[in-house]
Write a protein that binds this DNA or RNA. Structure first.
Lengths: 339, 339
DNA sequence: AATATTTACGCAAACCATTGCGTACCAAGT
DNA sequence: ACTTGGTACGCAATGGTTTGCGTAAATATT
């Protein structure tokens, strides 16, 4: 027993006029008498009339909805990013439909299909770590639907991107480690499929090169994003004959897990080994020692992604994908410097 | 230059038949010849036809979308809850529209209006801490739209609820403190406007009563959910002439901030003062000492909320609001027991 | 052979808001 | 008196799908 929605027809009937007149009166169309406009608006207000957005969608072939696909929600970085998207989109009169890929390609394909069937006006996506075939994403571009990559991207897909300056983030982190006297710097990288992981690795290599520190393959390990893998990767690097004196991690989870492993081994942080990680969690300040982090402007990424979408919506948009790169911020804390 | 969507009309034209025939053929209607069904289905598959959900929505006066309002996304508890909702709803063929109230009544009213204008089929909400007038929520019930409270609820609004057994969660936490020899147990409660905060307070009081421990008003302080307030509340209770030997906190943020304050004062945890908090973050295991927590089944709450919604959607539903109460789990860690 | 039933399909309305076009009326201009 | 122009409104189509009703032809029944 759904409550029947109030329509233009109801108002028209009440005022003994036509639906079109009511519609035009509400939009302040020039060909409607002030008298009629007043009557219509009065009644619409009194009855709290709102146009049925479904009908508008059908007509305009647009539903003022942006689809968003993230690998997971329950992750501080993505949830802040989502807040940025939600806030900005809402302000611009758009709705947001969030979906989760769980880092699985199949789920990503599924949710994108669902979103396409829903006739979303645009898609903002952080591809899963399994996403190595891009057909489903190219399909979106081919349909002419605005596509915006956030955080991670697919090289060959011609779409806009809002990225973090991962290269320089990693570069500065390593530079900081070097400035604190570290010489053997390990890097626990993320999956090679992730663009930002590759960028961070490059930044790491770039910094080593600048300071003439030889790259040693054994100091670089790739970690999938599980807890176990983080533990193993850390164990691996600190078990080397020549142990590293510092570790740059792909993200905070790896860093936290790594610090735990290191502590269990009885090593002191930062004296014997120091840590830097890409991270955002406010909770960092409660962990001892506090982790030195490369902060990613998560909220801002969400904002910029929506802004790019809005640009692409405007009529005079030329289909040239844009890339926005946002700067990171290095926050130095106890895991690299004695406090 | 939006790509034009493929419609029934296109298929009908191609096959020199009518739209209605195509529609019925696709739904395996009895009055369509097997021959025609085959042709239609073949073409639909080849062209990858999907019905326009907007048109279906308009017709059915239903859009297979559930609105969800949470105080914030970037909070572990809520983000897990959201994953539970998203997952369950998707499986049932529903979409989810997440909105954030930022704990502000005005924003809550705004987003609910937006959702209502969108003609959502149901609303799942955790009311903001400012929500003390319920007109906007009663309006939903009056319209006959299924409303489900999660985590927090409004007494006077006749709607279903999925709650956590906050009373017993707090009760057991206090019981645990008592069993570890604590006698002066403080409680840093949440805002009095939040139903779950009131329940936890009751559980705290109930446990004290059971063990004949007198209630002392000075041991109970209310905290809004800011960091500063958490610090102040903690300072307040540990500055009492007769200091408490343990603290039960409304949530993890208060506990973490509280432990920081206590450490700064040079007090040892759990020897001199112990902590229990309602919390879910996996990150807990990295904080020293690890916090003993009352775990709320966040994901499950999301699931149950969607299930209640689905029940209410079914035709034979009688409008009797249900309340589901999910159990908490006490996980004992280093903040209450020496490890 | 005449009527009843089944088969297989099309027409058109419904859902609701929007909009191009048409029309009826009135006043001003030639 | 006749055209032009403006005003104020209604009709009908549009968007895509579903569905009640109608109908023609083919088969079955009396």
């Amino acid at each position: 027993m759904q409550y029947r929605q109030l329509t233009l027809k109801d108002i028209a009937k009440e005022l003994n006029t036509s639906v079109s007149t009511v519609s035009r009166a509400l939009k302040d169309h020039h060909s409607i008498s002030p008298e009629m406009k007043r009557k219509v608006n009065d009644l619409a207000n009194r009855w709290d009339y709102h146009p049925n957005p479904v009908a508008v969608s059908l007509l305009k072939n647009k539903n003022y909805t942006i689809g968003v696909v993230v690998p997971e929600i329950a992750h501080n970085y993505f949830s802040i990013l989502m807040e940025g998207i939600e806030e900005t989109a809402t302000q611009a009169g758009y709705h947001v439909m969030f979906c989760v890929s769980k880092e699985k390609l199949q789920r990503e394909v599924d949710v994108i299909n669902t979103l396409l069937n829903m006739r979303i006006d645009g898609l903002i996506i952080a591809p899963s770590k399994e996403t190595v075939s891009y057909d489903h994403l190219e399909a979106i571009v081919n349909r002419g639907i605005p596509l915006i990559f956030i955080d991670r991207y697919c090289e060959s897909v011609p779409a806009s991107r809002v990225l973090v300056d991962d290269y320089n983030g990693a570069f500065q982190a390593v530079e900081h480690l070097i400035s604190t006297g570290r010489k053997r710097i390990a890097h626990i990288a993320g999956p090679e499929t992730l663009s930002n992981s590759r960028q961070r690795l490059s930044g790491y290599l770039g910094a080593l090169k600048k300071y003439n520190i030889p790259v040693e393959d054994e100091l670089i390990v790739h970690c999938d994003l599980t807890r176990t893998s983080a533990r193993e990767s850390t164990s691996q690097v600190i078990s080397l004959r020549k142990m590293p004196d510092s570790i740059l991690t792909y993200n905070s989870s790896i860093a936290f897990e790594g610090m735990l492993v290191v502590k269990e081994k009885g090593l002191r942080i930062p004296d014997q080994i120091s840590f830097v990680g890409f991270a955002n969690e406010p909770i960092i300040s409660y962990i001892e020692p506090q982790l030195t982090t490369v902060i990613q402007p998560a909220y801002q990424i969400g904002q910029e992604a929506v802004n790019l979408f809005l640009e692409q919506q405007s009529n005079d948009y030329e289909a040239i994908p844009k890339t926005k790169i946002l700067l990171t911020q290095l926050v130095i804390r106890g895991s690299t410097v004695k406090v």
